[in-house]
Design a protein around this nucleic acid. Structure first.
Lengths: 195, 195
DNA sequence: CGCCCCATGTAAGACGTTACATGATTGA
DNA sequence: TCAATCATGTAACGTCTTACATGGGGCG
């Protein structure tokens, strides 16, 4: 239960394990076959990451020795792991994350509902929306400032960044609307099985 | 002139030096003050990266000892460096870059006009557009497939990814239109080998 | 004089990438 | 039997992060 930092890959693993216990190999397959291909499926990254998480007490591994199968270790999230995941997810979005770590924010959001229920998702969206709203004028200013000095491709690149932030802002609004439309009934999974 | 790989930061430095010779400190300021804040302005990253580029013969450093100033080394792109930059920029965009390395593609594009003229920019845009067009149906499929199994926040996260790719595709079309509107006059700073 | 900006650098440590290694099971 | 897939791991390597170190120059 040491207290060192957890990498993005580490959080991705925690989030997946929260949904369903899995082996390292299962996790690799998820990374290589789904939309999570952004993450590395290399054993040299995953197995050491799992070991670190286990040393920190965030996951627990159980060796499956059912049949005459080769040893296969299935990892489960511990209570500490679930707490760590929740605290990572509910932490407000700040400027530097918007600039350098949007993918991590989206990862947080993807796991938010299972980890902290509707409220967690909505909270994260609001926080992201606020940060985007305060950051965008900044970019517009840079576009105006650089108009003269930059080559066409340079200012187009900046334009692309601006558009992607605007699209994201619109998405946060739509996502908030989606949650607003949903019944306010307690959708919060306390323990174990999900729908 | 060893032949090892160049990191993203390395290319960012080459691109900036192509526009204008600069010292390590100048480059750090660019990273910390402009829209290029995505790149680290830490000396522990930049100075070693510059040294590597110099060892590869891609840049050359000249110590300025004009006044009684403290030594200040100004780096310039060599011919080899310019060639390397061009080859990086003109290399076609592939699937894995679209998935994991869009920021690097945008970096390439930002530098493309100065490095290889209008044709380089247009070529890169076309390549990106083709790759996006072939990748997007893939994501739509995943959305359809996961609709049942994913929690709301998960599918919304995927939706965000899809939208950002669609926005980018629209941007490539607009950018191509921008270049099409520009005069075809030779803006190319290099003697033509390709027709 | 003290403080901040210029300007460059090094050292320790963590993480991911690539490549290699191992071995069991299943199917052709 | 050969190949592929399941399943886990290690070793070397490079790069970034964080933090520290150094030292001159300008300014109040």
């Amino acid at each position: 239960m040491e207290d060192r930092a957890i990498s993005k890959l580490g959080y991705a693993l925690l989030g997946l394990l929260q949904a369903k216990p899995a082996s390292g190999y299962d996790l690799r397959k998820i990374f290589s076959s789904t939309a999570m291909t952004t993450y590395s499926d290399s054993p040299g990254a995953i197995y050491p990451a799992l070991r670190r998480l286990q040393q920190q007490g965030l996951i627990r591994g159980n060796v499956e020795d059912g049949a005459g199968l080769r040893r296969r270790q299935v990892f489960t999230l511990t209570a500490e792991g679930a707490a760590e995941l929740r605290s990572w997810i509910t932490r407000p979005v700040n400027r530097s994350e918007v600039i350098r770590g949007l993918d991590e924010v989206m990862l947080r959001f993807a796991f938010s509902e299972q980890a902290g229920g509707r409220e967690a998702s909505v909270g994260l969206l609001k926080s992201l929306k606020a940060e985007l709203t305060s950051y965008l004028p900044n970019l517009h200013q840079q576009r105006a400032a650089g108009k003269a000095t930059m080559p066409t491709s340079g200012s187009l690149a900046l334009e692309s960044g601006i558009r992607s932030y605007e699209t994201l802002l619109q998405w946060t609004k739509d996502a908030l609307a989606t949650f607003a439309r949903q019944p306010h009934a307690s959708r919060r999974p306390k323990k174990g099985a999900k729908s």
